[in-house]
Design a binder for these strands. Structure first.
Lengths: 213, 213
DNA sequence: CCTACCGATCGGTAGG
DNA sequence: CCTACCGATCGGTAGG
């Protein structure tokens, strides 16, 4: 008997991840509250009860959608970074991959996390906490990469890492606000340029060599 | 008969503006969709029908709330600017007044417009269009002030005004995303510093003199 | 995974 | 400005 090994992903698991794929787009466009079970069921071609059975509560659906969005973020941005040299190359790759990600997902509403942050900020609960935790993790990642760049002498020793990390994150998040509203590719290009020139401003001669290559 | 002149603001008008004051805070915290007539009625101490009678539809209430928020923005930010000299002093005053405004309104949820932008971006209609129009008006204002600063030789002639305007707006909007979530005064101070140093980077000797004074 | 249902809340109407 | 209501939709339950 060949093929005795059970498929690692069961039918239920496959359906679940298909539902979450649709949920991620719906939540980005309409918000995590606008992500109603009935609308999701309609978009995915199932009955309301059928979708509900996979999660058990709206909050569980929201948390699963956040988890799915985080997995996509890891897969498309964080993981490819391990192939880049630490320091500035990794920093630029991080932002470039992020801007690629939002460009690809423009039709699905843009950046899931920026949209969710403003929506859930004033709604205490596990959903808000998960979004906040993601933001903190991402900020820590940027600070870490910037710290390594400074240690390697790629950016000036006088650089305030926390301020620089704040500015780069804010440039990206602010660009998302404009992008979500006006859906212009130009916004993404301006954001790429902004990040590049901001870092260039505190790069050492050694750091600047990494910019051209 | 003294006092024959009718009061310019009728009782109904006063109630209306009191309702809108509450609505503005509610919408900033819970979103323009979360601004339900029943919740608003409860917060303002009226019946649902009573609040509804003032506007006639939810969309009319949302539009009136946006108009009230724009009036506050004009009163607290745009109007005080006429007292400042054109060019860089006006530019810095614009951002400083804006950051003062969001700091004052932290308890009411932060910046009404940034919150509304992400919420309404993918919901076509008059409400979205009003938010978009505000953003365009504000962007035009910044570009105009920056253009005047360049004409006066306060910033380098090589400065790309549109790119600079984009970066300053993005820094502010991105800071609002972080502020809405974490409510830290430090976010505002970092944003002030970011705007200042970004402009300083392309200021001429003449422009830099305006920075210290 | 579906049908059939529940109480709560939504935007909106009627009549005063 | 209020009370009393309407149909639609929400999250969630029951039973299969």
């Amino acid at each position: 008997m060949p093929e005795t090994k059970r498929k690692r992903i069961s039918h239920g698991e496959r359906t679940r991840s298909e539902i979450l794929d649709v949920a991620e787009g719906l939540a980005t466009r309409e918000g995590l509250e606008g992500l109603t079970i009935s609308r999701l069921a309609e978009e995915v071609g199932m009955s309301k009860g059928g979708v509900f059975a996979h999660f058990g509560s709206k909050e569980a659906l929201q948390l699963a959608t956040i988890a799915a969005a985080r997995e996509r973020f890891s897969r498309e941005i964080t993981e490819p970074l391990v192939n880049r040299s630490a320091g500035l190359p990794q920093l630029f790759a991080a932002f470039d991959l992020y801007f690629d990600y939002v460009a690809r997902r423009l039709a699905e509403g843009g950046c899931f996390f920026t949209a969710s942050t403003l929506e859930m900020a004033d709604r205490p609960g596990a959903v808000r906490d998960q979004i906040a935790e993601f933001l903190e993790t991402r900020a820590a990642l940027i600070s870490m990469v910037l710290g390594e760049a400074r240690r390697r002498g790629e950016i000036s020793r006088a650089t305030d890492i926390d301020q620089l990390a704040f500015e780069l994150s804010s440039l990206a998040a602010g660009a998302m606000v404009e992008l979500q509203m006006f859906k212009s590719e130009q916004t993404i290009e301006r954001a790429r340029e902004a990040v590049k020139s901001r870092v260039e401003g505190c790069a050492t001669a050694k750091g600047k060599k990494l910019l051209v290559s």
